[in-house]
Design a binder for these strands. Structure first.
Length: 592
RNA sequence: GCGCCCGUAGCUCAAUUGGAUAGAGCAUCUGACUACGAAUCAGAAGGCUGGAGGUUCGAGUCCUUCCGGGCGCGCCA
């Protein structure tokens, strides 16, 4: 239950009554009325801008209107006080019982506290990773994987029906290039050529991929087919065969990598599958029937004409009708379909499967591609569909501030495996979520393993582990007490009345609202900051007991107050667990 | 040259999506442990939110325009 949403409906009802009674003009739009926690806790428990937003349409001075509303809000359930502040804010004080009630809710709901129905089971498609099956996954993929996975979990928690997808780019020239490189490694595995030959071909740019990671692929091919392909000269024969082999092999590796991160997709869609099944042609036909394609010649890019520029006619999509800067090619001048054409078919496929809300997680280097896909989606859905693209900025991998570049496996970049081997899965996941997706992220091996307040992973885990530690002591101190969640839900929570205890309760009660806000904004990183703040408040409360022993959670002579406080500690633990679950991270029982 | 993203304390970042006196951590200074785990906590100090205009009750947030940084820029994927 989101207390702020509940209060919003109650305040809306008050405003409605005032309209009915003729004290306010009828038909005021309440959409802009917001009920939120005030930034400064001294302003009360909740605050609303109703008077300021409605002043103009109601033809009243904000403060006068605020006084009117305050007079009526005072009678609302759970409200113990209300006052006007500043330019017309209405600050409302709620009965402490509301916050204690939230704790009861937490103990009953467990980790699922914060689950919401605001998503209304609406279908959402989250597409992420979609790394080309051309080599090992690297840090950039890892960030996209974690952000996408956390967003999917977050949306599910907020009540959306989420499908997690991976688009396999297995149809274009890149995979052919890998096939060509694989052939070299394959010949090497058969002893036909040497490592020097491979490196030479790389330097002469005869092949674009040559990493050592292809060696086991070549060995696997040799193990399966022997020297079957060694003397096949016709590229039209060996390229498709080797491409298919390498795509299958690489996708297996990708899935293993994702599995080691705890990331699992529901749907894998193959670009080649779309082409082969005729869905690309269907999509182009769909656009043509709506007069959204034509054969034309594109202008050269302004200010930077390529040397070999020459105008050529090709099939174009009228992207400019949907907000893009130029019309975009659907077919190459050779007549072959472009990657964009496949992508249109893919997004049409998503729409045909019933999705109107699409989210794609891409690397920042694809920023220039966003508008055209959004244009395509608008064309495909008549403006009904929405596509939000989250562009993930670079991850800089450091060790004590020094850039880490070399990878044991890939040679030039840090792989996902390197990260997990170095610091562990949960740390990777958490750290990747400590920044907005559009901000660059520094990932420092030394810092993320540090046991200090500087390191958010540690700090949050420590808060949880400390809470569990209290329970271990409590079990010895009160051997007959029922310390289960159900038992604690029956504790006398009115024993919680220290201002800091109530402060933590308020923070816990804000969790459902935070989940909803983060889900709608597609910003999973908000969870990380919330958890850090909650951990901070919990550590502060703990330490108050150092000086004031009567504030310690466990009071041997007073089981009643101890159980109330244990309920609070448990509530903190459950909300931390609830948040970590969104991240796919397990809370820790202890950290010794 | 054009498009997208970004610019907040010395450093790394928040800011309830347009709300009140812009908040944390690090670094600096001062304090709290024979311990419900001090791996923590309390306090001090630190700001013309890159600059200039505009929109309105109200702007770090929206608009315009400069400055600075990142990414991208015909048929690659």
């Amino acid at each position: 239950m989101n207390i702020f949403a509940v209060m919003k409906t109650r305040i809306d009802a008050v405003l409605g009554d005032l309209m009915t009674a003729g004290k306010l003009p009828a038909g005021l739009d309440l959409a802009r009325v917001v009920v939120e926690p005030p930034r400064d806790a001294s302003h009360g428990d909740i605050s609303t801008n109703a008077a300021m937003v409605l002043a103009k349409p109601a033809g009243m001075a904000p403060k006068v209107l605020a006084e009117l509303i305050v007079a009526h809000v005072k009678g609302v359930q759970d409200v113990t006080g209300a006052s006007v502040a500043g330019p017309g804010f209405i600050n409302i004080k709620l009965d402490d019982a509301v916050w204690r009630g939230a704790l009861t809710d937490i103990l009953k709901a467990g980790r699922s506290y914060g689950d919401s129905t605001v998503g209304g089971s609406e279908k959402v498609n989250v597409e992420y990773v979609s790394a080309n099956p051309t080599g090992p996954m690297h840090v950039g993929h890892a960030r996209g994987a974690v952000v996408g996975d956390a967003l999917a979990r977050l949306l599910a928690k907020a009540g959306f029906a989420v499908t997690k997808e991976y688009y396999i780019n297995d149809a274009g020239g890149q995979v052919d290039n890998v096939a060509a490189a694989l052939r070299m490694r394959y010949l090497q595995a058969l002893g036909r050529i040497t490592e020097a030959d491979v490196q030479g071909a790389l330097e002469r740019k005869e092949i674009q991929y040559g990493g050592a990671y292809l060696i086991p692929v070549a060995e696997a091919l040799k193990a399966r087919d022997g020297d079957k392909w060694a003397d096949v000269a016709d590229a039209a024969v060996w390229i498709p065969a080797l491409r298919e082999f390498t795509v299958a092999y690489m996708m297996k590796l990708v899935k293993e990598d994702l599995d080691s991160l705890g990331v699992h997709h529901d749907v894998f869609t193959s670009e080649k599958g779309l082409v082969d099944s005729g869905k690309v042609d269907d999509a182009l036909k769909f656009l043509a029937e709506r007069d959204l394609t034509y054969t034309g010649v594109l202008e050269p890019p302004k200010g930077k004409t390529p040397d070999d520029w020459e105008p050529r006619p090709q099939l174009l999509f009228k992207a400019t009708q949907f907000g893009d800067e130029v019309d975009r090619p659907l077919r190459k001048s050779s007549g072959a379909g472009t990657y964009f054409a496949s992508d249109i078919a893919y997004h049409k496929d998503k729409v045909d499967r019933g999705f109107k809300n699409l989210v794609n997680i891409w690397g920042a280097d694809h920023g220039g591609y966003v508008k055209r896909v959004q244009a395509a989606l608008a064309a495909l859905t008549g403006g009904e569909g929405s596509l939000d693209v989250l562009l993930c900025q670079m991850v800089r991998v450091l060790n004590n501030g020094e850039p880490v570049k070399m990878s044991k496996r890939a040679g030039t970049f840090v792989t996902l495996r390197d990260l997990i081997d170095e610091v562990g899965r949960d740390v990777v996941r958490f750290i990747m979520l400590t920044r907005k997706n559009d901000a660059p992220l520094d990932f420092d091996y030394a810092k993320v393993m540090e046991k200090s307040r500087e390191n958010p992973v540690f700090y949050v885990h420590y808060a949880h582990a400390r809470g569990r530690s209290v329970f271990r002591h409590a079990a010895e101190m009160f051997p007959t007490a029922d310390l289960s969640d159900a038992g604690l839900a029956n504790a006398d929570l009115t024993r919680l009345n220290d201002p800091d205890e109530l402060g933590v309760l308020r923070m816990l009660a804000a969790w459902p609202r935070l989940v909803e806000g983060a889900a709608f904004a597609h910003e999973p990183h908000r969870i990380a900051f919330y958890l850090y703040e909650l951990a901070s408040q919990f550590h502060a409360l703990w330490n108050k007991g150092n000086d004031a022993t009567e504030l310690r959670f466990l009071q041997a002579a007073d089981q009643s107050v101890s159980c109330a406080r244990l309920a609070l500690v448990r509530g903190v633990g459950l909300v931390i667990a609830s948040g970590l679950t969104v991240f796919g991270v397990e809370p820790l029982e202890e950290m010794r």
